[in-house]
Nucleic acid binder design. Sequence first.
DNA 1: CAGTGGTCTAGACCACTCC
DNA 2: GAGTGGTCTAGACCACTGT
Lengths: 263, 263
Amino acid sequence: MNTLAPAPVPDSAASATTPLEAAPAPTAPLPLFAQIKARLRQDILEKRLTAGQKLPSEAKLQAAFGVSRITVRQALAELQTEGLIETFNGKGSFVTRPADAPRLGMLAGYHDFMRAHGRETGGRILSARTGPAPPHVARALRLPAGQPVSAVRTVRTANGIPVSYALLYYEPTQGRELLAERVHQEDAMTLLETELGFRLEFTQISATAVPAGRRHGVLLGVPADTPLLRMRFIPHDLTGQALIYAEVWFRPDQFTYRAVVRR
Amino acid sequence: MNTLAPAPVPDSAASATTPLEAAPAPTAPLPLFAQIKARLRQDILEKRLTAGQKLPSEAKLQAAFGVSRITVRQALAELQTEGLIETFNGKGSFVTRPADAPRLGMLAGYHDFMRAHGRETGGRILSARTGPAPPHVARALRLPAGQPVSAVRTVRTANGIPVSYALLYYEPTQGRELLAERVHQEDAMTLLETELGFRLEFTQISATAVPAGRRHGVLLGVPADTPLLRMRFIPHDLTGQALIYAEVWFRPDQFTYRAVVRR
DNA sequence: CAGTGGTCTAGACCACTCC
DNA sequence: GAGTGGTCTAGACCACTGT
């Protein structure tokens, strides 16, 4: 017997909606700890276990899944290195709040960075509408060409000076409409993690320099042909799905991109 | 008894040079697995175990340290998640060659990227001399102001077209002089990892856009005031020491910086 | 105090690699 | 087949957290 009983996720929370038999399992029956890990991960991603919530104790998991403690601990250990849970001696294991996890990409995010430097951040939304996705956006978001997407344009300021012009694309599903109301106040990545509850796994980043066009020059308050830093951010969740496509033009005299990268 | 016997690193390789008693251990005697891990890590960093080399088998480590297999495995597991070793079923554990480890920062490095796109990379060294460190460089490398550092200037080309102008600073110690002979052919980060055997842990990166000055314009073959992408890379080793300070100006029509960042 | 995770042991069986 | 890592069990003691 190498397959877990279809036991519900123990303790609190309903489940039953995800019988283990539905797993792939054509060839290799996953090791026990991997099955437990997959189950818990799914519970987290699908919000049956929500941010900050305490997981069942190791003893309870042990009993519920009918395995030894070491097996339970191996599952928890891997979830921990993946940053999905945190465990505290004497207290228990808890689903990480995404904001708790150290942010490696953009150092603490744009707004935090500005505030940390004593600059008042502001901004406004220039437009927010829905239309067919441009080809490169559709490709990045893995959507059929021409599929309708939301497009939001914003300008951000610091101490009243324009800093960036941003163009955001995303599928107009789930609670993502919130982006159109808040991106001028908070970082899109922060909103995705804290307000919308997505679990970011990795982000594709690119950077280049471009001369300010007429339109960007006016919006950012610089003469045409002034060098601008143009970056693209494409954050992905744990399943590899791209969540948004963001293209941002920065005034280099007002902002320098900084990051810390492992390896 | 909670302290490992001063057993030498078992199998091959001399050691004995690092008795465990020299450890901190004033208050909390590290857990056994942590002591084993520390010992192996040290052996790797100090080249008693070198890249690609096979570690003693779990059974041998078990016997050598006088602990149970699980304890050995916990040490190995953590070294693995830190990327210091790789293990293969049926073969053993091996010290990772830094180049094997997935490179998250610059996607596969500049030269690999160019070659992957079928472009012939070239370059030349403009100058290599030693002089007092500029203040911002001294600060980043944690050196006393004015301390002598090596400074290397290079230009890189792809298919004969200038792509970047780079300015590298580093302490002229150890084998690092090699940098002055090879940076025009290989990425500095790659040289540090593969040729010089450093273990990179994290890299500070910054990006901004600047107008090409007269000198940069001539070197890169673009008119003055053309926008350039200017990036700084400061790679650090496992101890947090900055290894080099690199400042690079890219022609944006020839190169876009791309990276994948966790979280 | 009870509950929780942190560490550790001594064994076991399996799958994989290489000779 | 011998050597190696991958998985798993049953039990133990400790340190920390809360009441």
